[in-house]
């Protein structure tokens, strides 16, 4: 016979609910468990303390990593005082301008050298005893190919 469900029991009208009885009984058991948990060996409590401190340290690391980009960003803004000024933009483009100017100068210098070499050849031909029109003569060309001039 289970008094929790028996309605003919003399205590039927005053019976507590089954859940309340279970809770009451469970509280007695857990009171024992709590007393046992408070009496853990020293090495166990020390390892738990170490675990707790390690968790806190890892949390500080995680928080530091999460906030690091914001700090760098703030530092940059503070250093430049807001958007870059016009002269800073121009100054940042200066190396590129110098590079382009250098390339143009080198190209121009190279062209001048080629012109000078061509002029020297032309002047040498014109100053030679042999007239330039001789190089257009087929007989003279054949003479040069056969090496008869040597």
């Amino acid at each position: 016979m289970n008094p929790l469900t028996e309605t003919n029991s003399p205590m039927a009208g005053h019976l507590p609910k089954p859940e309340a009885l279970e809770g009451q009984y469970a509280q007695r058991l857990t009171a024992h468990l709590s007393s046992g948990a408070q009496a853990l060996p020293h090495d166990i409590t020390e390892r738990l303390r170490f675990s707790r401190e390690r968790a806190l340290a890892s949390r500080r690391t995680a928080v530091a990593l999460a906030t690091a980009p914001a700090v760098v960003h703030a530092g940059r803004a503070a250093a430049l005082g807001g958007p870059p000024a016009l002269w800073l933009r121009l100054a940042s483009a200066l190396p590129l301008v110098v590079l382009v100017a250098g390339l143009v100068f080198i190209q121009h210098h190279h062209d001048l050298q080629q012109i000078e070499v061509a002029a020297e050849i032309d002047s040498a031909l014109l100053a030679d005893d042999l007239p330039p029109a001789a190089y257009g003569d087929p007989g003279f060309s054949e003479f040069l190919r056969n090496g008869d001039a040597l």
């Binding site: 390892r47 675990s51 707790r52 390690r54 968790a55 806190l56 890892s58 949390r59 995680a62 928080v63």
Partner: peptide, 12 residues
Amino acid sequence: QDAMIRLAEKYA
């Protein structure tokens, strides 16, 4: 310890 670290890192 693993549970403590998970709580501290992921639910900070």
